[in-house]
């Protein structure tokens, strides 16, 4: 009997999660573009769109609880619903970070440009790609891909430290830039956090496919 009632519901749940994931990806990409292209209107749109993402999060929360209560899933089904329920707030937080980047863009766009953004877009691209791969890996339940994404986070961390040093130097050399540089520092921090969150998503995918908790266990993570 392959057509279980629960299958339809799980498919719907997956669709809802992927829609949230896609919207979050777009929010991140647009927030970064509002910064690099100095497009304040776009930044405002991103902030506006955050409300929709919050609604999506609530919807998935409600639906997950409904499936747990009414379908009483077991084994893989259970792990799937749990994973989705845990990934949802992570995506929402990523979207919040995108919103914070957009807020920073609104302020920075009114100031003169400090320098051409190089490392920050690179970080952002990395984070966006990690997020995309992580969601794909979740859809295809590819634990190996998830583990590769977890490794990729180190690149972002490295990038973050480079940007951090660069901006600190800038502040010391030219105190006038301090305010703007501080905002950029926060943007870098947001991107670094997003990388960490994507890592959490990947860990949940490993839980989904292998029923193994790799969180807080560096040895298994390396495996």
């Amino acid at each position: 009997m392959e057509h279980r009632i629960i299958d339809q519901q799980l498919d719907l749940l997956r669709d809802k999660l992927l829609l949230l994931g896609g919207t979050t990806e777009a929010a991140l990409e647009r927030a970064m573009r509002s910064l690099t292209a100095r497009d304040s209107d776009l930044a405002r749109e991103v902030l506006e769109g955050d409300k929709i993402i919050d609604q999506m999060e609530l919807d998935i929360d409600r639906f997950s609880v409904e499936i747990l209560a009414l379908q009483q899933p077991a084994a893989h089904d259970l792990r799937f619903v749990i994973s989705v329920a845990k990934i949802t707030p992570i995506l929402e937080r990523i979207a919040d970070h995108a919103g914070s980047i957009a807020e920073a863009a609104l302020i920075l766009n009114d100031e003169p440009e400090l320098k051409k953004y190089i490392d920050l877009p690179l970080m952002a691209e990395n984070a966006a790609e990690m997020l995309r791969t992580a969601l794909d890996a979740f859809t295809s339940e590819d634990a190996a891909a998830s583990r590769r994404v977890i490794e990729q986070d180190k690149v972002i961390d490295k990038c973050y430290h480079r940007v951090f040093d660069e901006l600190i130097t800038m502040m010391i050399d030219n105190p006038v830039t301090t305010a703007s540089a501080a905002h950029l520092l926060f943007v870098a921090k947001h991107l670094e956090r997003i990388g960490d969150y994507v890592k959490d998503i990947c860990e949940l995918n490993v839980y989904l496919t292998e029923a193994a908790f790799i969180k807080h266990s560096p040895r298994l993570e390396a495996a």
Binding site: M1, E2, R4, I6, A74, A75, H76
Partner: peptide, 19 residues
Amino acid sequence: MFTNPDEKLTEDYITGRFG
């Protein structure tokens, strides 16, 4: 058994994939 059974058959049974 109810979160991660070893056997595919068990999983199919407890998730209601066959009657």
